[in-house]
Write a protein that binds this DNA or RNA. Structure first.
Lengths: 148, 148
DNA sequence: TAATGAGGTTGCACCACGAAACATTTTTTT
DNA sequence: AAAAAAATGTTTCGTGGTGCAACCTCATTA
């Protein structure tokens, strides 16, 4: 299970040095074979390849005539790239994906259990601010009666 | 059950020396394995690892396409870090979490039953002041008919 | 009341990780 | 084929995390 947020910077060649605490887990789980793709919320998703496959299956099983479905397919499958950790535990982020998520030098890598999200630092902060805005933060209806 | 508020200060390396009265309980309950994460109210949550897992489960079961749900996931799971008490009963607070909660040297550790909250001292005072503001503090509807 | 011991706290030194710069190899283009 | 650009690999430096150890405080006992 991947947890925790790490502030990182892309190097001059747009490579992301994965924190060592996660490297071992990634190498172990998938031999360093990963999938990086786009998320509707303008961040990137980083999955171990094995974990990604069933998700892609599920997406492509949806009707490609439905506007909503095909839009999601184009995003999630269309942007998906196979990549692997290099000898120094880094991975190269393509211009297309960088552009999509607006990544500049400073980025935030956020563990989300089965996968990671990769954010432009400003976008991350903006999204945070939004949750905490207001006296009382929004609680999804499914969590009725749930407390921390 | 964790109770009581303790004023503490982070050391030069940003470690928090857990009060001895709580150390034993923490070691006993979870072998010193803890999870520290972010709370929407700009404080940090400190859970025994075992107590945290079911909460994370519940969060990750929500839809990651829904804005509210995913925002909560990003906050609670995205910031969650595994840590453990060192030999001197201290725990290291990462830069990311310190930054999130605006922790400087003076902090307040507040027992909340199953877990603790960790506050920036000023934020803590501000939040206190808010409750006590006014002659009569607001009573949640769920507490109808309840009295201290 | 003084001495001894245990537990707690603080400071110090070492080690590991991340960032950046540098070096080398491979590919593409003219 | 040569040169430039892209990709991959290596090294170094600085910061930050970790563990150890000395010191201080408090409690206990004679």
């Amino acid at each position: 299970m991947f947890r925790g947020a790490t502030s990182l910077s892309l190097d001059a060649k747009n490579r992301l040095a994965v924190p060592t605490k996660h490297r071992e887990a990634l190498l172990h789980e998938c031999g360093g074979n990963l999938v990086l793709t786009a998320h509707p919320h303008r961040c990137l998703l980083l999955y171990p390849q094995a974990a990604w496959e069933p998700i892609q299956e599920k997406m492509m099983a949806l009707s490609s005539f439905d506007k909503q479905s095909s839009a999601l397919q184009r995003l999630l499958v269309g942007f998906a790239e196979d990549l692997s950790l290099d000898s120094a535990g880094r991975l190269l982020v393509s211009p297309v994906l960088r552009d999509f998520a607006g990544l500049s030098k400073e980025v935030m890598l956020v563990g989300q259990g089965s996968h990671f999200e990769l954010w432009n630092m400003d976008a991350w902060r903006a999204q945070l601010a939004q949750v905490m805005q207001g006296e009382q933060f929004a609680m999804p209806a499914e969590l009725e009666g749930f407390s921390l």
